[in-house]
Design a binder for these strands. Structure first.
Length: 423
RNA sequence: GGAGGGGUGCCAGAGUGGUAAUGGAGCAGAUUGCUAAUCUGUCAACGGGCAACCGUUGCCGGGGUUCGAAUCCCCGUCCCUCCGCCA
């Protein structure tokens, strides 16, 4: 959400910047500015009346003490009349305020100047590609077949228990999951992130805070009876730790990490592209979240990218980094790097991490500020990234490291799995 | 799930209808012969103004009663205590 003062003072800049998203916000912006002007006029009007009412109330108090009953009843009438008219203005003001808020939530974040132009994922800019050196057998098979062959992931069983998109991991498959989670968490902790265990169900305030509500309402599982949402990512609870918080500048940066399952409805996704582990309703992910001062945020983003690179290198997986174009950029993000690993058996790239900077877009919604050394309050810049999402990493490990003898576990992971081959 | 008690500023904590005491922390200024003390101010949000400043709102959230609400009433929410249930 953009600050109202910012919108007021940067009309043309915002309209121009959103063109990168192929989104015309001119109408919305002008509407907001119009409503905001009206709101301020009404507010002044209201405040003047309330000031008068306050004076009268004080007078009445004094008159009671003096015992001047006549004057009291006259003033009471005047005050009552004022009250009726302030109530009307008050309601109007509330209504305008809600309208402005609703309009503001419709404006996506302003794309960073480095975001490339483009319409869709086809226009994303590849900024890094590791050497691809995969030596898989001629009869290489996709992970859903490997999973069956080695009896490590059971998709049918998951369908029976819950439905499609809810796999059951078993035997070495379950242990591999656990190993990856611990490996990722440890890597993050070594890099200075503090580990949290957070709720997997969140309220609507939290959903609004990170920008998932109202924009992505239909993509989250909603428990109606208690009005709670199953988290689509740990970003939601981890970031909302800092909702309605005033930090000191010396508190920053704040770096947190957490493992959670993630739940996504993914309505309407079927077919080969979503086969096996490629797209699920429930999956595991380790997330990193950073809070930074505006001046240091961009460097922090680069640091997060380097961090994810290191993890992928340790897993010996071939990967590339894409800078998302305006058309593919998420609603709340200002700049996003996607990490994709190459699956030799599927002969395609699989997204396994997304690292983003939001500037103050989330902190405006979260009411998250920090006090500078000079005592000025400013909104914090937020960033987050996956480090990492499990299912496609598992798919990549299975498919790229398959041999005729079995699936070879990367060295870095063996202390966590306790085995070096799945056979 | 049932019963009762509570929620006041950054923190502690008074305040049962007349418009938020008092401590402490932090910050700013002043001052003093220097590990610090003392004094003053500031310490929530919003609107107006170049500014000093002025005004409004703010006592968990939302309604209500009243000329006037932290205070009284209703709904919600969270915390604490007890009972019930329970991994």
């Amino acid at each position: 959400m953009l600050a109202i003062q910012f919108i007021r003072n940067n009309r043309d800049l915002i309209i121009e910047a959103q063109k990168k998203r192929n989104f015309n916000v001119e109408k919305i912006i002008d509407n907001i500015i119009k409503l905001d002007t009206l709101k301020r006029v009404k507010q002044t009007e209201l405040e003047n009346k309330l000031a008068k009412a306050n004076i009268i109330a004080k007078e009445i108090g004094a008159l009671y003490k003096a015992g001047d009953e006549k004057k009291v009843s006259y003033l009471k009438k005047e005050s009552s009349a004022l009250k009726t008219s302030t109530k009307i203005i008050q309601d109007k003001l509330t209504k305008i305020g809600n309208e402005i808020l609703e309009l503001r939530t419709k404006i996506p974040n302003i794309p960073n100047e480095n975001v490339p132009h483009g319409e869709s994922e086809k226009d994303n800019e590849e900024i890094f590609k590791s050497d691809i050196f995969i030596n898989i057998p001629k009869n290489a098979i996709p992970h859903w077949e490997l999973a069956k062959k080695y009896d490590i992931i059971d998709f049918d069983l998951g369908s029976k228990i819950s439905g499609s998109g809810f796999p059951v991991y078993k035997n070495k498959g379950a242990r591999l999951q656990r190993a990856l989670i611990n490996f990722f968490l440890d890597q993050n902790i070594y890099a200075g992130y503090n580990e949290y265990q957070v709720p997997h169900l969140v309220n609507s305030e939290s959903g609004f805070g990170t920008g998932n509500l109202p924009d992505k309402e239909g993509q989250m599982y909603h428990v109606r009876e208690d009005d709670l949402y199953l988290i689509p990512t740990a970003e939601v609870p981890l970031t909302n730790i800092y909702r309605n918080v005033l930090l000191k500048e010396s508190d920053l940066p704040i770096c947190v990490t957490g493992y959670t399952p993630c739940f996504r409805r993914e309505a309407g996704s079927y077919g080969a592209q979503v086969r096996g582990l490629n797209r699920l309703h429930q999956f595991d992910k380790v997330e990193i979240v950073r809070l930074e001062t505006p001046g240091k945020a961009i460097n922090a983003l680069e640091g997060m990218v380097e961090h994810v690179k290191k993890i992928l290198s340790a897993l010996e997986l071939p990967y590339r980094i894409l800078k998302l174009c305006g058309g593919d950029l998420g609603f709340t993000s200002s700049l996003t790097y996607d990490f994709e690993i190459f699956s030799a058996a599927q002969e395609r790239w699989l997204e396994i991490s997304s690292v983003s900077i939001f500037n103050d877009f989330q902190s405006q919604r979260l009411n998250l500020k920090y006090k500078t050394k000079q005592g000025v309050k400013q909104h914090v810049y937020t960033l987050n990234g996956s480090a990492l999402a499990l299912p496609r990493v598992v798919a990549g490990l299975l498919e790229n490291f398959q041999t005729n003898e079995g699936i070879i576990i990367p060295k870095a992971l063996i202390p966590y799995t306790g085995f070096d081959i799945i056979s």
